[in-house]
Every structure is written in C-alpha cells, then in structure tokens.
C-alpha cells in the first residue's frame, strides 16, 4: 500500500504543514498584542509604556455595588478580581450591562486608575439556563 511515491508525498505534506504551522505560530507571537480584543485591569497596571492618547479597550467584570448614575453620565468599576479601574461613560448601554456581569469598554485612559469610555459592550458568559432555575440556584 505505501509505495515509495506515497511515502514521498506524505513526507512532503508533513513538512509543508509543519513549516506553515511554525511560521504562523511566530506571526502570532509577534502580533499577540493586537490579537487581544481587550486588556484587563491587571495588564494595565503592569504595562510600562501606557499610551494615554490612543483609544484602547479594557474588559472585566462590573464590580458589585459600584454602579452610580447621574443624569449626564454613569460611573462604575471594572475589576478582574485583582485590580480595578474606574470607568465613566455617557451614552447608550446594551441590555445585558449589569453589575456582576462581564463588560468591555472602549475609550482612553485618563490616568492609571481612571478610564473615559466612548463605547460600552456587554460580554456574556457561556452559561445558559432558564430564569426559574437561576432563582433556585440562588
């Protein structure tokens, strides 16, 4: 079944795929920063050369009891359970935005702990269940 010709083709194919996979791996290694859709508060804290002029995205969870709203803006804290950033935002919020839920904010950092958002996206988790069940779990 495995003639010399067949073996040669297998070898050729394996080497091509291997080489492409390795090169793609390195491309990703270089691009890694751009592939991240958002940064967590801890990553912001660690980052040595923060650019306060560039728009970035930060993401995490809306801290419980941190949400406060005035007529002009809403303020809340994004947390990744280790570090926190205060976010201020004025504009429309998505339906699923709530305390204790995931969120991604797009905007600029004012300083290391204060973020001015221009857009808010809600991030939902991978759990699906009917509302009655959720009450029982609580």
């Amino acid at each position: 079944m495995l003639t010399k010709k067949v073996k040669k083709r297998i070898l050729f194919l394996v080497s091509i795929v291997f080489l492409t996979a390795v090169s793609i791996f390195f491309i990703f290694k270089v691009l890694n920063d751009n592939l991240l859709y958002f940064k967590t508060p801890s990553e912001i804290k660690k980052d040595e050369n923060l650019d306060f002029q560039r728009a970035i995205r930060i993401g995490g969870m809306v801290k419980q009891n941190s949400l406060s709203a005035t007529s002009k803006e809403i303020k809340f804290i994004i947390t990744d359970m280790k570090n926190e950033i205060i976010v201020s935002y004025s504009g429309a919020i998505p339906n699923l935005f709530a305390e204790g839920k995931g969120v991604v904010a797009e905007g600029k950092l004012k300083d290391r702990n204060y973020f001015i958002a221009e857009k808010i996206l809600a991030k939902h988790d991978e759990n699906y269940m009917p509302p009655e069940l959720k009450k029982n779990v609580k």
């Binding site: 592939l35 991240l36 859709y37 958002f38 967590t40 988790d125 991978e126 759990n127 009917p130 069940l133």
Partner: peptide, 21 residues
C-alpha cells in the same frame, strides 16, 4: 486571547454549560 465572544459552552469530557431544557 481575550475576546468579546464567550468561551465554548459544550466541550468533550466536560459537562455542558447549557441547561438540558
């Protein structure tokens, strides 16, 4: 990577994160 899309709900060898209903 960090994505807006949520992680997989159903994966081999783990119990599903979707309610049976």
């Amino acid at each position: 990577w960090t994505t807006l899309h949520q992680p997989a709900s159903i994966s081999l060898g783990k119990s599903s994160k979707i309610d049976p209903s």
